[in-house]
Computed example of a mutant assay.
Amino acid sequence: MSKIVLFNKPFNVLSQFTDAGNAGSTRKTLSEFINVPNVYAAGRLDKDSEGLLLLTDDGKLQHRISDPKHKMEKCYWVQVEGEPCEEDLNKLRSGISLKDGMTKQCKAKIIEAPAALWERDPPVRFRKTVPDTWLEITISEGRNRQVRRMTAAIGFPTLRLIRYRIGSWTIDGVENGHWVVQTLS
């Protein structure tokens, strides 16, 4: 039996258990939150992103979750600066040309601010004269900082990025900074 840890990663936490390259660093790592032995992150989530990070003790499952060839969907709640319209969202849906090539088609829609949203520390810096909008973006690939680069490419920089779902796993019921373990047969 293998296990999977669903961790709701806070802002400013590295997706690894040690900060090997930075002796004396004060950056937070997974070791400050998770005390489950022999689990490893299946994929990564940038330090400045929040939400679902999966960890497992099953190497094959870890590979299936993180390898782009398996096309496991990842759904993000994205707070952007400005007010994108349907034409802007259609650009995302069709694929965006980035420096490392075209993104695959994705799902994108405007949503209300998520009801289960926690306070971020530090809070997002807002400009009184510029509105912000929440989007739900679902992708099936995982390039470095892809969602942030996609929203910037259509003129709406990302203010806050929360991964809500990977495949069928979500952060529902998992408070920010906490984790739950599921046993898989």
Rank of each mutant, 00 (worst) to 15 (best):
P37K: 01
K28N: 12
L53P: 09
L61F: 08
P122M: 01
L30I: 09
A116M: 11
L161G: 04
F11K: 09
K107V: 04
I111M: 13
R149V: 04
A108Q: 06
F17E: 09
P114H: 09
E87F: 12
F17Q: 07
P68H: 07
K74R: 14
D46M: 01
T170M: 06
S25Q: 10
P68D: 12
T103C: 07
G167H: 01
D58T: 06
W77L: 11
L30E: 03
P122G: 02
V36H: 05
L89S: 02
N90Q: 15
V80C: 09
D172Y: 07
I139S: 04
D132P: 08
L89G: 03
L61G: 05
P114L: 08
E112M: 13
P157D: 09
Q105W: 00
S140F: 00
R64C: 10
N22P: 05
F126R: 15
V13H: 01
T29P: 03
M102C: 04
V13Y: 01
R120V: 05
F7Y: 05
T18G: 10
F17K: 02
G142E: 02
K74T: 07
S97C: 03
Y76C: 04
L52F: 05
G177Y: 00
I4P: 06
W118L: 10
K107G: 13
P10R: 00
D58P: 07
E86W: 04
H178A: 11
E32Q: 14
L61S: 03
K91D: 08
I154R: 06
K109F: 00
K71W: 00
Q182Y: 05
K60F: 01
D57E: 05
L52H: 08
N144E: 02
V130H: 03
W134R: 08
N12V: 04
S185K: 15
F17D: 06
W169F: 15
V80T: 04
W118K: 10
L52E: 07
L117M: 13
R64D: 14
K9H: 11
I4E: 04
N22A: 14
T103Y: 03
K104H: 12
T18S: 15
L61N: 03
R143I: 05
L6P: 10
R27L: 13
